[in-house]
Computed example of a mutant assay.
Amino acid sequence: MGYQDCAQLMGTLFICRSLNLVLSIDPNNAWAYESRAEIYFDMGHPDKAKADLTKSEEFFN
């Protein structure tokens, strides 16, 4: 893994942790669930991504 890959991964992990914080403060934040789902999908965790997308959709029904 090169420097740029490592830096990108660190940035992604920071964003994911920030979204976790947002959701701990506001568990009804559909945007945060949707954003975190994108990150999970990009990181190769489709099950977590699907769970977050399902959760975000609950707020629109």
Rank of each mutant, 00 (worst) to 15 (best):
M10F: 02
V22I: 14
Q8K: 13
W31S: 14
N29L: 11
S35E: 15
N29S: 12
S18D: 14
L9P: 01
P27V: 00
T12N: 06
E34W: 10
E34G: 13
C6P: 00
L21V: 11
G11A: 11
M10H: 05
F14W: 07
V22F: 04
A30Y: 06
Q8I: 01
R17K: 14
C16T: 07
M10E: 03
R17E: 01
R17C: 01
G11Q: 14
G11F: 04
D26R: 10
R17P: 00
D5C: 01
L21I: 11
N20V: 00
N29C: 15
W31H: 07
D5V: 00
D26K: 12
L13C: 06
Y33H: 11
W31M: 13
T12K: 13
A7V: 08
M10A: 03
F14L: 12
C6H: 01
N29A: 06
A32H: 09
W31C: 07
T12F: 03
L21C: 09
T12L: 11
C6I: 00
I25D: 05
L9W: 04
C6V: 00
P27T: 01
F14V: 06
L19K: 02
L19W: 03
Y33K: 12
S24M: 12
S24Q: 13
I15T: 13
S24Y: 07
I25L: 15
C6Y: 01
V22H: 09
Q8L: 09
L23K: 09
N20T: 05
I25E: 11
L13H: 05
N20Q: 12
A32M: 10
I25N: 12
C6E: 01
L9F: 08
